[in-house]
């Protein structure tokens, strides 16, 4: 979710096999320097893809002697997913970060084969995406400051996952500002 000179990315903590909850502490947000990647979908692919990008981004950083920008990361994710066009990773990633050249917030989302959705406001993904669309569309407004953005993204996520049987068990919320990242752990409904 985009705010004024800040972005937020949040995830729930449930890992499940259909209705069976396997773990209630499975974060889905991974950090790659200045860029944050959220991954929903098949858990094994979530881990694989997260590690794959860990490798790719580390290689980028060593080769280019710089951090990857959110935009470049988006294109890297897109091309990497499209490489598996006919045997995709079952994930729908979300990217959030601040571009340090322009100082502007950046978010985008993808389908499982890498089609990028550049959004100005918010991106949702996962089993509760319908609910998230509703809450985000209802609660979001332009130019929210970091604290207001935190409240908005948290309320949007918590209330959405409470209406989805397959999501929940608390949340992680990252508020990304130019020179500061705040990570908060939210206690949600435990059912």
């Amino acid at each position: 979710m985009v705010g004024k000179d800040c972005v937020a990315i949040a995830c729930d903590l449930r890992l499940g096999l259909q209705a069976l909850t396997v773990s209630n502490n499975f974060p889905k947000i991974f950090s790659y320097g200045d860029v944050y990647l959220g991954l929903t979908g098949l858990a094994t692919d979530v881990s694989t893809v997260a590690d794959l990008f860990r490798y790719k981004v580390n290689m980028y950083r060593l080769r280019e002697e710089r951090q990857i920008s959110p935009q470049t990361m988006a294109n890297l994710v897109s091309s990497s997913l499209y490489e598996r066009r006919f045997g995709p990773y079952f994930v729908s990633p979300v990217i959030a970060g601040i571009n340090h050249t322009t100082g502007k917030p950046f978010i985008c989302g993808f389908d499982s084969i890498g089609c990028i959705d550049f959004a100005k406001d918010f991106i949702v993904s996962g089993t509760a995406s319908d609910q998230l669309f509703g809450t985000c569309e209802g609660l979001w407004e332009p130019d929210l400051g970091p604290e207001d953005l935190f409240e908005t993204v948290s309320q949007a996520l918590l209330n959405a996952v409470d209406r989805d049987a397959l999501s929940g068990w608390g949340a992680h919320v990252y508020i990304i500002e130019k020179d500061k990242v705040t990570k908060r752990l939210l206690k949600g409904r435990q059912d």
Binding site: D130, Q131, G134, T135
Partner: peptide, 19 residues
């Protein structure tokens, strides 16, 4: 059709869920 979108918003804004 849009019940899944609207309902969690209502939980939050009418019944003050998670507040």
């Amino acid at each position: 059709a849009a019940a899944s979108l609207i309902m969690p918003f209502l939980d939050n804004q009418v019944n003050y869920k998670n507040q």
